[in-house]
Simulated assay, not measured.
Amino acid sequence: MLYQFDGKQPQVGSGTYVSELAHVIGNVIIGDQCYIGHGAIIRGDYGRIVIGDGTAVEEGVIIHAPPGDTQTIGRRVTLGHGAILHGRSIGDRAVVGMGAVASIFSQVGEGSIVAEGSVVKLNNTIPDRMVAAGNPARVVRAVTVQDEEMWSYGKQIYIDLAAKYLEEGMIPVA
């Protein structure tokens, strides 16, 4: 699950769960109380990846940094199942929905939401506290208090789930 590459090895924070079925490779720093789900691939091979505290990298997410650059993912971020990130930054408390793509050098602002299946194209930026949807992703509205409440609840679910996996572990069934 954790692999050294090119003389660099992942660093994982306290209270963080990394599934045995995930691949975390090379120059990757993961904060405290994160959830790294089954089948996630986090490739810090020719770039660096930094993931903030309390972030959920759900199942099947792929994260890669642009060559010689850093992909920064903020605190309490939700990366939905099957999302693909190859960008520059995802701001604190942002959400990248299931199956969404953040392409090379893209940026997603603090508290923003990228809807499921959307594509943030090469070099594009989603401003802070905006909801973006479509291909290419375009701002459709501002984030509401209801959005923040719902996603805050969802983020806590994954922080709690990480703790439970660490406490109980997965037990193979014969």
Rank of each mutant, 00 (worst) to 15 (best):
D6M: 14
G7L: 15
K8N: 12
S14V: 14
S14Y: 04
T16E: 12
E20H: 14
L21H: 02
I25C: 12
G26R: 01
G26V: 05
V28F: 10
I30E: 01
G31A: 13
G31D: 05
D32H: 08
C34Q: 06
I36T: 11
G37L: 01
H38N: 03
A40E: 06
I42N: 03
D45W: 02
Y46W: 12
Y46P: 00
V50D: 02
V50A: 03
D53V: 11
G54K: 05
T55H: 03
T55M: 08
T55G: 13
A56S: 15
V57P: 02
E58C: 09
G60Q: 11
I62K: 02
H64W: 00
A65K: 01
D69T: 00
I73G: 00
R75C: 09
V77G: 07
T78H: 08
L79V: 04
L79Y: 04
A83Y: 03
R88V: 01
R88G: 00
R88N: 03
S89V: 08
D92T: 10
A94H: 04
A94G: 15
A94S: 11
V95M: 12
M98W: 01
G99P: 15
V101S: 02
S103I: 02
S106C: 13
E110N: 08
E110P: 01
I113K: 07
V114C: 07
E116L: 14
S118F: 08
S118M: 06
V119A: 14
L122P: 00
N123V: 01
I126E: 01
D128P: 10
V131H: 14
G134A: 08
V139N: 13
V145E: 15
Q146N: 05
Q146G: 15
E148N: 10
M150N: 05
M150Q: 02
G154I: 00
K155Q: 09
K155P: 00
Y158K: 06
I159R: 09
L161A: 10
K164V: 14
Y165K: 08
E168A: 04
